[in-house]
Amino acid sequence: MPRILEVTGLKKHFPHRSRNTLPWRPRTMVKSVDGVDLDLEVGETLAIVGESGSGKTTLARTVLKLYEPTAGRIVLDGADITEHSLRRMTPIRRNMQMVFQDPVGSLNPRAEVAAIVEEPLRVQGMRPAERRRRVAEMLELVGLNPGYGSRYPHEFSGGQRQRIAIARALSVDPKLVVLDEPVSALDVSIQAQIINLLVELRRELSMSYLFISHDLGVVRQIADRIAVMYLGRIVEEGARDDVLLAPKHPYTQALLSAVPIDNPALRGVRRRRVLAGDTPNPANPPTGCPFRTRCWLATDTCATTAPELLSVSPTQRVSCHVATEPPQTR
């Protein structure tokens, strides 16, 4: 399969001045994304899961060049866009679009829905008559009445607003859509409608999705592959069922075991791995393996050497000294 996206060694560091730092001291850096490799095939959905502070949103925005990468390479559809200027990015943006979490904040409250959906088309230089036709087509595609184009965002429910945001992103016929927690702000009943819509659209329009989420249940519905992030790095990556059914990294295992299960009869029966404490501060990450401070398998090696992401099967990669050890030495 041809690849739509190839990311190698991607880093995004933000300067961070802590309270105790004097102005002439060197500023510390928050390593939000710290060496991420990923690739995405045409028509594939890769989910990035992780908790708050894991760097998943920064990764998504850096991939789209909404942030300037600190290091690494981003290749979109065969072209290296890492060094592209803002101006050179404009024509490329028709191939890469984004849907945000908050359907209220991401739509201009003073613009009519038609103008919102039309904007990327205008940027890409489409003629007005053609634009109008395309807007009606897009609204219909996402399950909205095309006659609603003259209404304003506040006249719509949360789910409908997310449909508008999806229509806007898809209007330019992108090859890659980055969805950042697109259903997290929605009620359960609406969530399912939007997930189904996204799955259906991807199939019809043969796009690729980079799907950012903290919700493993949602991710399971939509992803072909899953990458788990912790403190700016991918700790495990693999085919959906590998990661969800046979997680190798202790963090993935803990994450899965923390998800509540919808069966009260299993209460107390299921063995739960409750992680102690919180994710460490990304401005001051642990040495060696980022997860070792909360890991129950951590050894001396983990404190000194950061593990690399290694293949444990053709479809699964793990970054853990213990999990990737050869079985005889374990």
Binding site: D187, V188, S189, A192, Q193, L216, G217, R220, D262
Partner: peptide, 19 residues
């Protein structure tokens, strides 16, 4: 309509409309 971590992955059941 709750996304689950077990069972087959099929089209999700939805509640039509909104409250």
């Amino acid at each position: 309509s709750m996304p689950k971590l077990s069972g087959a992955v099929t089209t999700m059941r939805t509640i039509p409309g909104a409250p």
